[in-house]
Design a protein around this nucleic acid. Structure first.
Lengths: 196, 196
DNA sequence: AAAAAGAGCTAACGACTGTTAGCCAATAAT
DNA sequence: ATTATTGGCTAACAGTCGTTAGCTCTTTTT
């Protein structure tokens, strides 16, 4: 092997993916070109292919990296002994933080998954459906245990996840608002709707 | 003038825009091609230009059509004498209905506005910012009047609008759920978080 | 009947797309 | 010291993109 990493403790592949995530968010996957990406990496377009296999491989990497992170976090919460309302709060806070400090990645997994080629597309959608189902199961349990008010669980999941993913349109307009304030405001609203 | 309308009471331009809205939603603005669109309209790509000026003119038409509809609806609500909580409920129901029966258009205005060329882009974002500000003003008034609980108004607006725009990811997975049920579930959750 | 305009077509332009081939220099492994 | 590998580069392919030019036929207006 020749030199395996550039400056900073990251592979060139990781650099490419990082720059790509920025570009994909700004322009959208379809409108972002490899020559565009190459320029941001500081290399010719063809050279990218020494590190990646294709444009859509980048998208796959990003989407499944995010998906896996959410799923493994959910597993920890599921296994915990918290009451259901607290579980939901934990998950909500986690989503908000992911959104805030891995913004580019989360955004792409949220908005650009459409451009995944099969079979990755189906795979991704299955994981997403499964994830949502498990969240609504928590709420369902919460209602059954009398810890939450009777509300349609899937609607609640939809509202919660959508509200959080909408933070992107906030970021730009109110960079000033600090993260903790945003998080606590948001949790307040979303949890209030679940509380009995 | 030659024949000014095709079958149905719609101009060919309207047909093009309607077909385009479907295509733009499915593939994204960048990935949808004029040849693709032409095929759906039943015509050669070049012939489209007898009715429209450019690809992005279609996007502009869709985005501002939706924006204008929302704004003029808001004006009616603002001018009404309802209590603030009722105003918000009216607006929420209106958004949900727009989302359900003008799905394609609303989706594009929500997700594809990024591809608007300047100066339309700035224009659109200004209108959006203004719209959100006016919603948060209603909530602020509601809090001041003691009709709503003290919550950060802009956070509430963000949660509400994002939650509704997330209905798209619902539609596909639960076509069965009828519109009224969805609407009432959603209103229940979103209004509950505002009520004192 | 003559003129104008609408609305379709084919062909093509120039720019840009993701990607491959093939070459060369530097580094790592033997 | 020699060989192998890595990771750059240039050039190019085959395709697609939005759009225009220029033609023809049909329909409307005068």
């Amino acid at each position: 092997m020749a030199k395996i990493q550039s400056r900073r403790n990251s592979t060139k592949k990781e650099v490419i993916i990082e720059k790509a995530s920025r570009l994909f968010r700004e322009k959208g996957f379809g409108a972002a070109s490899m020559r565009d990406l190459a320029e941001h990496v500081g290399v010719e377009a063809a050279s990218l292919y020494n590190h990646i296999q294709s444009k859509s491989e980048i998208l796959q990497t990003i989407c499944f990296k995010v998906a896996n992170e959410f799923i493994s976090n959910l597993e920890v919460v599921e296994a915990s002994l918290q009451p259901t309302l607290k579980k939901m709060e934990t998950i909500i806070r986690l989503h908000i933080r992911m959104m805030l400090d891995q913004y580019e990645y989360v955004y792409i997994a949220d908005h650009e998954w459409r451009h995944l080629p099969e079979p990755y597309l189906s795979n991704f959608l299955n994981q997403r459906r499964n994830y949502r189902k498990r969240l609504s199961d928590i709420i369902e349990t919460g209602i059954a245990k009398g810890e939450m008010k009777a509300i349609d669980p899937y609607t609640a999941v939809l509202v919660i996840l959508s509200a959080i993913s909408g933070i992107d349109s906030w970021q730009r307009s109110r960079k000033s608002t600090n993260a903790e304030t945003l998080e606590s405001n948001m949790v307040k609203y979303l949890i209030e709707g679940l509380k009995k």
